[in-house]
């Protein structure tokens, strides 16, 4: 029952959604739409599950005075403040009946001045690491790496006004060699061809995996038997 019923559920739900594309009428069309609605709702429970798990892990760390446990206090405190601000819609008008992101509400302020700087700067850090990695690892070691390097060069320069200035002296018949034109060509021709090949490959993989899951051949998503 622990493994068979989930496999049956996956089969029924997956099959109905596939059939609903070919027979978009009652009962399949209706069922397909309802399954999608249920999916959207269950997705929220995943957020709650994630939050619960986070509290459990960090609660444990605090309780057992694990290494760096004071930081876990920061996590739990941050979670609690944000949750109270959001669930009770503190501040902003018209309060509990209004929009969660109403300007002036505590939730919006925390989003703007705590969540945003933290998230944005985390990603901005990558600018530094990408530069450092370029210097250390981006080498023309062989023909393939040289092609990759040249393409990156053309894109890096061609997507800036500097690239325009660099080759603007070229005569009209050779304008296709201007770096911005080359960059545009690379993006819409060889890049597109390569991405398309990858996309077709991925699509085949997704289709094969979907079939395996629906037919119950692939069951790894159910986890270990011991659970």
């Amino acid at each position: 029952m622990r493994r068979q019923i989930p496999v049956v559920i996956t089969f029924i739900v997956g099959s109905v959604l596939i059939i609903s594309v070919f027979i978009p009428h009652k009962p399949f069309g209706q069922l397909g739409e309802n399954f999608s609605v249920y999916f959207d709702i269950i997705a929220v429970f995943a957020f709650i599950l994630g939050a619960g798990n986070l509290l459990r892990v960090h609660g444990n760390r605090i309780y057992k005075k694990h290494k760096d446990w004071p930081y876990s206090v920061v996590t739990v405190a941050g979670f609690t403040v944000m949750m109270i601000a959001g669930l009770f819609k503190i501040g902003g008008s018209p309060g509990i009946t209004g929009d969660l992101t109403e300007p002036g509400s505590m939730f919006e302020d925390l989003y703007m001045y705590v969540f945003t700087p933290l998230m944005a700067t985390m990603f901005a850090l990558l600018a530094f690491y990408v530069a450092s990695a370029s210097h250390r690892a981006f080498r023309a070691k062989n023909k393939e790496a040289t092609v990759l390097l040249l393409a990156a060069f053309v894109i890096l320069l061609g997507r800036t006004p500097f690239g325009v200035e660099l080759t603007s002296w070229l005569p009209d018949p050779l304008s296709f060699l201007e770096i911005p034109n080359l960059a545009s060509w690379i993006m819409s021709v060889p890049n597109m061809a390569g991405q398309r090949a990858i996309m077709v490959g991925i699509a085949l993989g997704v289709i094969a995996m979907a079939l395996r899951v629906i037919l119950g051949v692939e069951r790894t998503y159910l986890g270990a038997d011991s659970e």
Binding site: G50, A51, G78, F79, V81, M82, G86, L87, F107, L110
Partner: peptide, 11 residues
């Protein structure tokens, strides 16, 4: 960040 974002998505 971890704490705030978990609560954010939940709310």
């Amino acid at each position: 960040f971890v704490g705030v974002s978990a609560a954010y998505w939940m709310c």
